[in-house]
Nucleic acid binder design. Structure first.
Lengths: 185, 185
DNA sequence: AAATTTATACAATACATATTATACATAAAT
DNA sequence: ATTTATGTATAATATGTATTGTATAAATTT
């Protein structure tokens, strides 16, 4: 291949960005979030909305929406630089941390949404339980559903512990990141 | 409330189904996959495409698509019953196992898609490296990208170990399911 | 052998999400 | 005080995904 090495390197960086973008639905976020993440990552310094707009070919409005989502997900942060009015955004430079941030953010929301559900269901089942006109079949069905609500609660409590397991970094004690030694090549 | 207890119980089951459906985007699958999962779960015996179509109000075509996806994701299975021509589908009755199945299925696909990427990038960087017309800045950039490909590889290998950690059940040694004792109430 | 049932391929449509264009509020520069 | 820059609210549009309708192939029943 006759391409200039610099151009070739650019292409490789772009392939990285595209691969990150491509993977992002696995993390529960849009392709564009991944693309912006990858672009800032490869840029190796914070970027403005205008720069992101230029780099992605998308509107500044869209870039604004995307970086706000990323900040909410803890995978980007606004950084301050003296002498510029424009907002600057940087991203997490640690693949593992990005995974943990997205994993915990996603599941925290799910856990939060289910916080009151079990209580509500149990209460409603209790109300039916107090109905005097109940036969044995009915009582059995209610007991099955009561058991179900407990399993639901147990599972969501387990999920909360799982999220904490990741958020605290405990996961890395059990599945260590590879040693850095070979990076000293 | 004056509702018949049986109707009330039906409503509670439906609320469970809707909550499962509602949560499903967190697991990376569609609301309809969740609804079908919940319906079969609450039915407590395998269901046919026609029954699912009836219960969901959706086309039989759609139900066929959905259950195939669920079978692919290891959260449903086709079961055989003597004396019926219709396919019967059952679902996993363990919240934890459903989580593990979806988690591992989702991430296995991502890992598979990235299997060759690092090799390809490294090879392309090596080709540039051999270019004689390289200056020091260029060489530094290539080294940064080579380091990047190693980190990528390390991270995906870590993800593979993480998936195995879940798939093997190892996760439950570190974050145990709650004791079953209180279920004997 | 013919009719019927069943699941799914295929094409078309509906709906939800991603994105753009424009307007507007706020802050900074002049 | 006015102008300019900047980010985002809002409305409209484009695109991708979910779903339906119809056709078809294969298996089962008659």
């Amino acid at each position: 291949m006759d391409e200039q090495p610099l151009e070739k390197l650019k292409q490789i960086e772009e392939q990285f960005v595209e691969k990150i973008a491509d993977n992002m639905h696995t993390y529960g976020v849009s392709t564009t979030v991944g693309r912006v993440l990858g672009i800032i990552y490869m840029n190796r310094r914070p970027m403005t909305l205008d720069e992101l707009s230029q780099e992605t070919g998308m509107s500044k409005t869209r870039m604004s929406q995307v970086v706000r989502e990323m900040v909410d997900l803890n995978i980007a942060e606004k950084v301050f630089e003296k002498g510029t009015r424009k907002d600057l955004y940087n991203v997490e430079h640690d693949y593992y941390q990005t995974f943990v941030s997205l994993f915990t953010s996603t599941w925290q929301k799910a856990i939060q949404k289910n916080k009151m559900f079990e209580k509500k269901m149990s209460a409603e089942l209790q109300v039916i339980m107090e109905n005097r006109t109940m036969n044995e079949e009915m009582e059995q069905k209610i007991n099955v559903m009561l058991k179900e609500t407990r399993e639901w609660l147990d599972y969501y409590q387990w999920l909360a512990r799982l999220v904490d397991f990741f958020d605290s970094g405990e996961i890395f004690k059990h599945i260590p990141k590879p040693e850095k030694v070979h990076n000293l090549d």
